[in-house]
Write a protein that binds this DNA or RNA. Structure first.
Lengths: 217, 217
DNA sequence: AGGTTAAATTTTGTATACAAATAGAGCAAC
DNA sequence: GTTGCTCTATTTGTATACAAAATTTAACCT
């Protein structure tokens, strides 16, 4: 496979996201530099950028480590996503064009088709996850708020690290797809309260499905 | 005045926030470096960090500029703040201790006292602004969500740049203080829906006061 | 043996040097 | 006058060298 040109930032990032660099592992600039055949300078820059995104923790004069998250962090993140994506629905609904609604309906249809294929398919889960990202990303884009998009983006990384894309139960998958349909229907009807409420419930349902019920502190 | 040790990041940051570096001005690494008597390396690092925070725009191989915002950006930012701070109220209310409520009540009282002092006082406005930051910051802290705090923090910079702390009309100031009281009362009563609703209205009212009504696109 | 101090090593922070890319000036052709 | 080109100057991107800080190791004393 021809080596595609990627930035050092992307390389370290995917190394973290794939778990190649394990949790709270120390990231020594020199080591990373020699392993990638470059100098410390761009490595250092990439680490600081990853720190700004929250994927890496750096302490002055003491270097960088892969950031660490627990279930509590993930609950927090899904909570914020539910708030922000719900708001995206609210903003997107009055702006939605017929073409955009149709696009979302198509994504819904594709996901429903995929859900009906046999469970053993290796490619089914990533295909569903990809459509899911497209669905949510499209609504954020339709909200026409660049900053809202940026905020949500920074929240997305961490769940990916945690291998969140585990198998939904068939019932949960059906429920999730139904939420999608309902969101589109609400937007089509111009009912932003409906759309945003379902989106809120949708993200929180995903949280419960993935993380289970909260511990009573 | 003894020169306090500040990081290069802080120096550039305050230079932007005070308007010393004007809007969309080009930030040449070498120039900044010599003007601060240091080398390009830490300047570069500070610029990238500021870029991650949204105070600076960088394009590859083309350098950095002070970021630029228009009224639309500011509307977006206040909109997101209203959503996130309202959510902070929701989270904070069931967790609020008696001591924390009392602290907020004290801040309210101080602001009310300040509002009654004569209008000509030069120190009144910054004192009010400081108390306001404490009030909002305390509630965010009480929400016990570090990520929520971080998201809000990144949204705060820009309004500061725009010299947002202009004079409120006396009526708007009274209304604002009344909102604060009502938020604390709602939290005291354990009514998170009330508290978060008033917070939402409070931030959006500040937006209208500062930016005026939206242009009909 | 336990704990404290002092070298030695490792690692980060900063400076400088050079390579690559971009922007701009000047000139030529139309 | 305008468009397009080339060459130059400026500026960014990366490598390397050195200084400062932190961590580890070793020695030492009680």
């Amino acid at each position: 496979m021809a080596k595609i040109a990627t930035t050092v930032y992307e390389q370290i990032r995917t190394a973290i996201l794939t778990g190649e660099l394990s949790n709270s592992e120390r990231l020594v600039e020199e080591d990373l530099a020699v392993s990638m055949g470059i100098s410390r300078t761009p490595v250092r820059e990439a680490l600081r950028r990853l720190a700004a995104e929250g994927l890496v923790d750096v302490s002055p004069n003491r270097g960088a480590r892969v950031a660490e998250w627990d279930v509590h962090d993930l609950r927090e993140i899904f909570d914020l996503r539910s708030i922000l994506e719900s708001h995206a629905c609210e903003l997107a609904t009055p702006r939605a064009s017929a073409a955009e609604i149709e696009f979302l309906e198509n994504v819904c249809f594709e996901m429903e088709e995929l859900a009906e294929t046999e469970l053993t398919s290796e490619t089914r889960l990533p295909a569903l996850a990809a459509r899911n990202r497209i669905f949510h990303g499209k609504i954020i884009e339709m909200s026409n708020s660049t900053r809202l998009g940026l905020l949500i983006e920074t929240l997305i990384h961490v769940p990916i690290v945690m291998q969140t894309y585990k198998v939904y139960s068939p019932e949960a998958l059906q429920r999730s797809l139904h939420h999608h349909r309902e969101i589109v229907n609400a937007m089509k009807a111009g009912d932003e309260v409906w759309a945003s409420s379902v989106m809120r419930a949708h993200v929180l349902a995903a949280r419960e499905e993935i993380l289970g019920q909260p511990d009573p502190e």
